Simulated scan of single mutants.
Amino acid sequence: MNLRQKSRTTSAILTFLFGPLGVFYSSAAGAIVLILVALVSAGTVIGPVLCWIAAIIWGDHTVRRHNESVDRLLNRPLDDDGDGPQ
């Protein structure tokens, strides 16, 4: 496991600009799933749009989870909202 924190800002920018491709920053498996769903639903407009929105949410969620895991492994206390050291 990578013991470096990931940036939520970087994740947000990448997923906003590149959608499911931007999720590769935080989760390769998540990116592949979203890309496949977007391709399967490419015949409709709503499918890829929903995948794009899901990518932004998924990217932020996985970065937060990763950072919490790193903090736990390094025995750092979490702040009140649970997203990093105090």
Rank of each mutant, 00 (worst) to 15 (best):
D81C: 00
L14W: 08
A12F: 15
S41D: 03
G82H: 07
G59F: 02
K6G: 08
F24P: 02
S41W: 08
R72G: 01
D71N: 15
T62N: 11
V37T: 12
R76I: 15
I32T: 14
T9F: 10
L36S: 09
V70Y: 04
L36G: 11
R76A: 09
A42I: 12
P48R: 00
P20I: 10
A29T: 12
I56D: 01
N2A: 06
L17A: 15
D60G: 15
I46S: 05
V40T: 08
G30N: 07
A12G: 11
S41H: 00
R4D: 14
D79W: 09
L39A: 10
D60V: 08
W52Q: 04
L39D: 04
A28R: 15
F16G: 14
V33T: 12
A12D: 12
G19F: 11
W52K: 01
G59N: 04
L34E: 05
I35H: 02
I57D: 08
W58Y: 14
S27Y: 11
I56R: 08
G43F: 15
V45S: 01
A54C: 12
H61W: 13
P77F: 07
V33K: 14
G82E: 08
R65C: 09
K6S: 07
R64P: 00
V49N: 00
D60Y: 13
A31N: 04
L17N: 01
A12Q: 10
L39G: 12
I46T: 06
Q5G: 02
L50F: 05
H66E: 11
G82V: 05
D60K: 11
L17G: 07
V37G: 03
T10Y: 10
L3W: 05
W52N: 04
N67I: 10
G22C: 06
Q86T: 12
T44V: 07
T15M: 04
T44G: 13
L34K: 06
A42P: 00
V37F: 14
G43I: 07
T44F: 13
F24Q: 02
P20Y: 13
Q5W: 10
I46D: 02
G84P: 07
R64H: 09
L78C: 06
I35Y: 03
G59A: 09
G19H: 03
R8D: 05
D80C: 01
